[in-house]
Design a protein around this nucleic acid. Structure first.
Length: 181
DNA sequence: TGTAACCGCACTTATATACAACGCGTGT
DNA sequence: ACACGCGTTGTATATAAGTGCGGTTACA
């Protein structure tokens, strides 16, 4: 239905950090350049999700493919900080999923100009010279959908996988009723 | 040297986060 | 006229989609 390709989550360690010292302690796992960006980048491996850690102790995990993977990375991250003496205790104050990015497929080609009119011009943006996809902001979902001529659809801004799937299902039925396919 | 094929990149969307630099408004 | 505070913007990250552009490479 909807294939999740990216999950963005965030949390807090609830302690202030000296990022310079953290980078020193963790070595290759951390990439920190305060002149370029205030956050320190932490990554376990080449294609692993990225954790951006801030002075305030707050952090963001990007690039997970599921909620489960995000949770696992968080656990490993906390354990690693604890093992290096950066974190006194390995339980953080809060952690939550902020954004799901997924891909759906209508499995047929779409006339985007006609779709923009069908869905309503006030809810859509379609400027093919600027971007090949149609931007659809449904009234009853917080998610935003990017629809392409191939029928492939990107769903983003969802706070849960259920929200993403529901938004896509709703869009697909609207699409089918518009074009009677 | 010309043309063709291919590659990488920016475009757009959402979202958390922080810090610098900017504009603008108000008060002194 | 100037200082200060607040709001906004750009910086950076991941990720998919399809299009167009520039640059590089290969072959005739």
């Amino acid at each position: 239905m909807v294939d999740v390709v990216n999950v963005v989550s965030s949390g807090s360690l609830d302690i202030e950090l000296d990022l310079e010292a953290v980078a020193q302690e963790l070595g290759d796992l951390v990439d920190y350049d305060p002149g370029k960006y205030p956050g320190a980048y932490f990554r376990f491996g080449e294609s692993e999700p990225l954790i951006t850690l801030y002075r305030t102790g707050k952090y963001i995990i990007t690039g997970s493919s599921s909620e489960q993977e995000a949770m696992e990375i968080r656990d490993r991250f906390l354990t690693t900080l604890h093992d290096h003496g950066v974190l006194p205790e390995s339980d953080d104050s809060w952690f939550s999923i902020q954004n799901y990015v997924g891909v759906g497929d209508l499995e047929e080609s779409v006339n985007l100009s006609a779709l923009a009119i069908g869905l309503g011009l006030e809810k859509t943006e379609y400027e093919p010279e600027q971007f090949p996809g149609l931007v659809y902001r449904p009234t009853d979902y917080e998610s935003v959908l990017l629809v392409f001529g191939s029928g492939k659809t990107v769903i983003t801004g969802a706070k849960s996988i259920e929200e993403a799937e529901s938004a896509f299902r709703s869009f697909r039925s609207e699409f089918r009723s518009l074009f009677e396919s």
